[in-house]
Amino acid sequence: MDANVVSETATTVIHGHGLRKQYRQHEAVRGVDLSVRRGECFGLLGPNGAGKTTLLRMLLGLTEPTAGELTVLGCPIPAQARRARERIGVVPQLDNLDPDFTVRENLATYASYFGLKASDIAPRIDELLAFARLQDKASAPIPALSGGMKRRLSLARALINEPELVVLDEPTTGLDPQARQHIWLRLLQLLDQGRTLILTTHYMEEAERLCDRLAIIDAGQMVACDSPRALVAQHIERHVFELRGRDVGIWRERGAELASRHEEVGDTLLLYSNDADRLHQALNDHGTQRYWHRPGNLEDVFLKLTGRDLRD
């Protein structure tokens, strides 16, 4: 290995260039460049069918790209995917724990897929059970676990091989707020340990809270990639006013003058501006108009870049 490669892999965990995936009918990934740095949490955001899961499968060497180059943890993919997967942990979109085994047996069985012996791994399993707060459930069968517990176990299972990179496909979808908070805390803990995370999500606050950088993917292409804060600053004005009610019609023209940008969504009028005072004053002068003033956020960016049409 020459020095160049070493220095690159020291800071870059995933390096993809010109990635494409052509299926018979459609192209799921259409030329994506991807670079994930060691120790960061990288998010993939996109509507359903945008190509997020295909990209994740590519990283793991499970889907062969039609074109492009891909290196994960210094291993060319898919050529050395097996070697790479020895150092990766995966939390799948849908829990695929083995229902015939107990919680502890699930961890032990999964360890065996990495060639780890049950006797050597026992202390590690205890650690992971504590990490997932499932110590009391060690001998419980999987069907007896709640959705949140299953998710926590899936996360614990993904850590059995002490992975440098953890891949999470919608880690908190369908969880209640308590369970989601728990998963978030655990993910932050993994980042503190120096692990790299790459996750897909539909939840903007999840992306905003966890991700150092994120890529917005739409129709197989990366339409933006930066830190959440930079994305908001770059694409959305500082203030957003949402107007609803019968008088909205009046504000269509006035708003266009006062705000730098406006948009109608159903019976709601959205006014975007960097200067909140002028709008506040005008709206308050009018008196009867109900409105909601909030800062521009990641969801605004997402909808601006990927559009408001429903995706099926």
Partner: peptide, 14 residues
């Protein structure tokens, strides 16, 4: 149904 193979393929199995 169980996606057991899926979990194995995420590990270093082929």
């Amino acid at each position: 149904q169980q996606q057991t193979w899926g979990s194995m393929l995420d590990a270093p199995l082929t």
